[in-house]
């Protein structure tokens, strides 16, 4: 899963940073009088900055195209699901939802087909986060009043997927949830 790689990457980087700080600290405790300080600090600083810049640029150019805005942008969705979030429930329907008389239905979407969620809110800001049957967060968008966010995703595994609200929306935020089936 993506999250495991993220945690591993972070722990490795954090360990490297800790070792560097520790090494620098210990070097100050054990100083020989003959050779002191860092040699050519400006040159070293330049190389450090250049390497950091190149690494960050590579990271940016690899990751930006994978942003959710560009995923499946040229494809036609096999299914469109309208979502209206409100304190403290999600209303989902295959048809457009009337904000004055919102009503929803049970949702079933095809496995491996492109699904587009058109997400809005009827009151405050909410989150629309999809969790797979293993309770892992796989994708999300925000539900904002006055705007419709289009979230596209292809579900490979059939099963029951849950939706949790991930934007704090008031006293029952932690209980705001829904589910749908991928078949």
């Amino acid at each position: 899963m993506q999250q495991n790689s993220i945690l591993l990457l972070f722990l490795i980087l954090a360990a490297l940073a800790t070792i560097t700080f520790l090494y620098i600290y210990l070097s100050s405790k054990n100083v020989e009088l003959v050779k002191q300080g860092m040699e050519n600090p400006l040159k070293k600083r330049f190389w450090f900055l250049l390497i950091l810049f190149v690494v960050l640029s590579i990271f940016a150019s690899v990751t930006i195209p994978k942003s959710p805005y560009y995923l499946f942008a040229d494809e036609t969705p096999a299914k469109v699901v309208h979502v209206s979030a409100m304190q403290f429930a999600f209303i989902m329907s295959e048809n457009a939802i009337d904000p004055k008389r919102p009503s929803g239905q049970a949702i079933e979407v095809p496995a491996n087909g492109l699904v587009e969620f058109r997400v809005t809110s009827l009151d405050v800001n909410h989150g629309f986060a999809i969790y797979n049957p293993e309770e892992r967060l796989i994708t999300q968008t925000q539900a904002m009043p006055g705007y419709v966010n289009r979230l596209r995703y292809k579900f490979s595994e059939p099963g029951t997927y849950k939706i949790f609200c991930l934007e704090y929306c008031g006293m029952a935020h932690q209980g705001m949830r829904a589910s749908f089936i991928v078949k």
Binding site: Q2, Q3, I6, T63, I64, K66, S67, P68, Y69, G127, A129, L137, I138, T139, Q140, L166, E167
Partner: peptide, 9 residues
């Protein structure tokens, strides 16, 4: 951004 989609909030 591509990590934020599974880390945001």
């Amino acid at each position: 951004i591509s990590n934020n989609v599974v880390l945001h909030n």
